[in-house]
Amino acid sequence: LVRYRTISKIPQITLNFVDLKGDPFLASPTSDREIIAPKIKERTHNVTEKVTQVLSLGADVLPEYKLQAPRIHRWTILHYSPFKAVWDWLILLLVIYTAVFTPYSAAFLLKETEEGPPATECGYACQPLAVVDLIVDIMFIVDILINFRTTYVNANEEVVSHPGRIAVHYFKGWFLIDMVAAIPFDLLIFGSGSEELIGLLKTARLLRLVRVARKLDRYSEYGAAVLFLLMCTFALIAHWLACIWYAIGNMEQPHMDSRIGWLHNLGDQIGKPYNSSGLGGPSIKDKYVTALYFTFSSLTSVGFGNVSPNTNSEKIFSICVMLIGSLMYASIFGNVSAIIQRLYSGTARYHTQMLRVREFIRFHQIPNPLRQRLEEYFQHAWSYTNGIDMNAVLKGFPECLQADICLHLNRSLLQHCKPFRGATKGCLRALAMKFKTTHAPPGDTLVHAGDLLTALYFISRGSIEILRGDVVVAILGKNDIFGEPLNLYARPGKSNGDVRALTYCDLHKIHR
């Protein structure tokens, strides 16, 4: 019993810090008490220290592992850092350059016999395009090294910054494609005289377009951006097909006994025919423009016929181009109408809503002055909100995010209106959640004399007048207030005048 009563005193000691020596009952000389009392004092002292730490809000209350900052290894790049964003855009520009100039170089340097010394005699450094290609190869190699040090988000939505895990993730992902696209074939085969082989191998750079397509997928929600990307894709495919079309004609031209190829026909049409040795002929500019003209006309199913396939190889390629053109029509131009419709969806919704308003007016036989006010209010409210119901949009977000959005939407009023000066951010967040926005066209009466005042109004834009009878008592403008002081009276009061809008007004109100 003594032991039980001794232990039962522990909660009292913990909360009230009572010393055991003052209790005459606990001072009985028993061996059990002498053993338990020192333990009680020690526990009391420890609990006292913990309570003191909690009340003082000291940093040592938290466990040590929670006080440590997340460790980022040296030379690790955050995937959302500004440097990584700028670097990704730079790589994107280099990939676009590669997609345009690599097929052009591979096709127009394929057994090209233009006048001038061969590239091997001039030297590697004197070729501007080769120098640019070398810079692109170096940048792609540097990009691989950067990807080995860039964080990523795993399946659990955690940012991984450990170098080993980053390397394994990159090896399992895009490393092989990036490595093949970054191989400097110019340096590996330079001086061997195989410019045709170098041009063909350099087309491996186009593998990076797969990554670019995935990154550009984030802009699919913007109709104008999608339309622009589709047109660029169409032009890029036409450019690639033009390079292939020229390569076919250029390879067949020296081996044909009869002059029936499209390059021969082009030379005869523009007065620059090929001679018996295969030299001469149109310039590279004429060849490229004509090839691009043929691919565009074939892809769009126009086909004027002034550039036509004559050999079997050219006919087979033309059939493939027609098939590609039909697929592009289905996948690209078939979506253009939907994209344009999405661009004008706001206008369509406006006309639909206006039609419903006019049908309501016609069905209920609203008189002319009231009908005009109804239409003007709808037009003004639509121009202010673009038909978007803010309350319906915010309803799907958590309250903390709703408060931040409301604070942002009402920031101008909260910053410049005098009653809100000096208020804490928590108070402003709470008030912003209570605001209701209303609009009024010129001549609209917001409050009639004798109406119950259940709200306090803040003028965000425009001006109003307060009338008693036919006498203008006051004219209020931006950041002015009218209405009933909230919670100042037990019952809502009545208006002693009319409140009429002089201009288009936007008002925020808080109800009782």
Rank of each mutant, 00 (worst) to 15 (best):
A381T: 13
T424Q: 13
V100E: 01
A182S: 04
Y329T: 15
T113N: 14
G271T: 01
Y329A: 15
I77R: 01
H351M: 03
I144A: 01
H416M: 08
C406W: 03
L229T: 05
Y377G: 10
E375R: 05
Y384G: 05
R165V: 07
Q127I: 01
L230T: 04
I339F: 03
E196D: 14
S313R: 04
S81P: 01
G303A: 13
R71N: 07
L266H: 01
D133N: 12
I324R: 01
P441C: 14
W382T: 07
P128M: 07
F435V: 07
G305N: 01
E114G: 14
V86N: 01
T352D: 11
V302I: 02
V357C: 04
R218N: 04
L129T: 06
I166W: 01
L327T: 01
T102K: 05
V210Y: 09
A291Y: 01
L201V: 05
F420S: 02
D186K: 14
G396E: 13
P309Y: 01
P82W: 08
P369D: 10
L200Y: 05
R373K: 13
R356I: 03
H380Y: 15
S298I: 15
D137S: 05
D133T: 07
R165E: 13
I260N: 07
T290A: 01
Q365K: 12
G281L: 01
V307T: 04
H264I: 01
N154T: 11
Y170V: 01
I146K: 01
L355K: 08
L323H: 01
T311M: 01
K111G: 14
L94I: 08
V159N: 01
L413A: 07
K66N: 11
G123E: 01
R165M: 11
M231W: 14
L279I: 07
S81Y: 01
R211C: 01
V180I: 11
L428F: 02
D217I: 06
L401R: 02
K434G: 03
T76D: 01
L110G: 13
S81Q: 03
W240C: 01
Y293Q: 01
L78P: 05
F171R: 01
T311F: 01
P282W: 01
G346P: 12
T113G: 14
Y104C: 01
W89C: 03
P117D: 04
A330C: 03
L279D: 11
G271E: 03
M139K: 01
L409G: 02
P117N: 14
G271V: 01
W262C: 01
L109I: 03
D143P: 01
L187I: 14
Q365L: 03
L109P: 01
H448R: 10
F185A: 04
I284T: 13
V357N: 03
G123P: 05
S161W: 06
H351K: 06
S194A: 10
A107D: 01
H416T: 10
Y377I: 01
A291F: 01
L187H: 15
P70S: 08
A130H: 05
L236T: 01
F360H: 01
P70A: 07
A338E: 03
D217W: 05
Y274F: 03
A338S: 06
R71K: 15
P82Q: 10
L292R: 01
P103T: 04
L227H: 01
L67E: 03
F360E: 03
H416A: 08
L134A: 06
L413F: 04
H380E: 07
M251S: 10
L94A: 13
F234K: 04
T385L: 03
L216D: 01
L188W: 06
G305Q: 03
G199W: 01
L200D: 01
N410I: 04
G443M: 04
F397H: 01
L446M: 06
V168F: 12
I388C: 13
S313H: 03
G173Y: 05
L299R: 01
Q402M: 04
Y293V: 01
F185W: 05
L431F: 07
P273H: 01
Q365T: 04
R205T: 04
E121K: 15
G193P: 12
V168S: 09
L227N: 01
D444M: 09
I166Y: 01
I72V: 12
R349Y: 12
G396T: 13
A423N: 01
G116P: 13
K202N: 02
Y80T: 07
F108Q: 01
N410M: 06
R371M: 03
N156D: 09
V336F: 08
Q269K: 01
A119S: 13
E252M: 01
F363S: 03
A291C: 01
D268N: 14
L206N: 01
E158V: 11
D268C: 04
A224V: 14
S383L: 08
D133I: 01
R342Q: 14
L209Q: 01
T113S: 07
L200W: 06
S412D: 12
L446I: 14
M390S: 05
E112K: 11
L230Q: 14
H380N: 08
W174V: 04
M390H: 04
V307P: 01
L428A: 12
I135C: 04
R71S: 10
A392V: 08
I91N: 07
A432D: 03
N250L: 11
I237V: 11
R358F: 01
P309W: 01
A449C: 12
A430N: 12
Y170Q: 01
K202H: 03
E115L: 14
R205M: 01
R165D: 11
L401D: 03
V212A: 06
T295E: 01
F190P: 14
K418R: 07
A440P: 07
V212I: 04
P118S: 11
I189P: 13
I339K: 01
K111N: 04
R342A: 06
I248S: 01
D444Y: 09
G346M: 05
F333Y: 03
M139A: 11
V160P: 01
D286A: 01
Y350N: 01
G443D: 01
Q365N: 03
G325W: 01
I135Y: 01
F304N: 01
R205H: 06
Q269R: 03
L129S: 11
G303V: 01
S194H: 13
L110P: 11
F140M: 01
V100I: 10
C406E: 01
F363H: 11
N154M: 09
G325T: 01
Y222L: 04
V136C: 12
F101C: 07
L394S: 01
E195D: 11
N335D: 03
K111V: 04
G164H: 12
N275R: 04
E195H: 15
E221I: 03
L129H: 03
R429I: 04
A182Y: 01
T76V: 07
S313A: 15
A125L: 15
Y104I: 01
N275F: 01
L197P: 04
I244S: 01
P254N: 15
S301I: 01
F304D: 01
L323T: 07
L241P: 01
D137L: 01
P184S: 01
Y65F: 06
P282K: 02
A440H: 14
V336Q: 03
G271M: 03
S383F: 03
K285F: 09
E158P: 04
A338P: 06
W174A: 04
G267D: 01
R214I: 03
Q353Y: 03
N156K: 14
T347P: 04
N310A: 01
L188Q: 06
F363N: 04
L413R: 01
D286C: 01
N310Q: 04
D217F: 05
S308K: 01
Q372E: 13
C232N: 01
I141P: 01
T352A: 09
A235T: 14
A213D: 04
D268E: 14
Y344L: 13
A247E: 01
P103Y: 01
V226R: 11
H169G: 04
T437G: 04
I248L: 03
M328Y: 01
L370W: 01
A182R: 01
N154R: 09
K84A: 03
K202C: 01
T352L: 11
V132M: 14
A235E: 01
